[in-house]
Design a protein around this nucleic acid. Sequence first.
DNA 1: GTCAATGCAAATGGTTTGCAAGCTC
DNA 2: GAGCTTGCAAACCATTTGCATTGAC
Lengths: 142, 142
Amino acid sequence: MAIMQMRNMSKNWRWTRQRRSVLEALREMEDHPTAESVYRMLRDRGEAISLATVYRTLRALADDREARALYGAGADRFDGRTGPHYHFVCTTCGRIIDLAIPYMDELDRSKLSADVEVHGHELTFRGRCGACSGSEEGSSDA
Amino acid sequence: MAIMQMRNMSKNWRWTRQRRSVLEALREMEDHPTAESVYRMLRDRGEAISLATVYRTLRALADDREARALYGAGADRFDGRTGPHYHFVCTTCGRIIDLAIPYMDELDRSKLSADVEVHGHELTFRGRCGACSGSEEGSSDA
DNA sequence: GTCAATGCAAATGGTTTGCAAGCTC
DNA sequence: GAGCTTGCAAACCATTTGCATTGAC
């Protein structure tokens, strides 16, 4: 997917080589990488960039909703796919998989017990992925 | 809720004063405290305990399913209520509220796209809590 | 030319760990 | 008494930040 100016153009966003690289890498990587993984992939490709910049860029993208931060045990992971979707997390190897099941908008209209205003929801399934169910021991991908 | 021996009794679990205190505090606190908050509450009560022990105990409880760890931005938080239930997180003040809506078991039987084995799911709503919708500025509870 | 972005290294914050002493079983 | 648990401090890891320099607009 071509990376071009985006809505971040607002408020003095400068489109540097590093930012282009980070967003491009994130859109390519399907495995919900950590900042460190994005950094390693870029360095392996020969790009000149610092880890601090990767962190700064990923956070900025998440703040601008160009990426999504996923929290769990260990390092934060990032998802370059911004459309609403759910995740499956393998509790054996830690892999995170994007799910194709439809987003349930109706949930955002639910009357939750308290006097709260719902803006959205996150649904995450946990279990064992195909690879880990197969090999009894389970891989240890991370 | 009275704290008595629990299933941790297995594998040489020793029921120390500190462990009793941590579990008791966690069951009392409704606000999904961080390890640090549990520690402070216990010290304020005059209990003698170290922060390292609070961390070790909370992790042990979570591993044994006597507590649940909640991940998000910032420090990990813990929930002493072990029955299946969902959460609402206020994106303004950070407050986490337990929801009364029923757990959707049927979701755990869904055919997710991949060849995965589902063991459970987590559903978290995001939005503004009553306190923050009221005061336009929003409280900043944490 | 201006001011945001970068790189580096140091600082931070949350959490874990090594080890000697204390306590539960 | 054996060995799990504690407390302390140091170690650790992920992430952030200060500051001088670089580079986008």
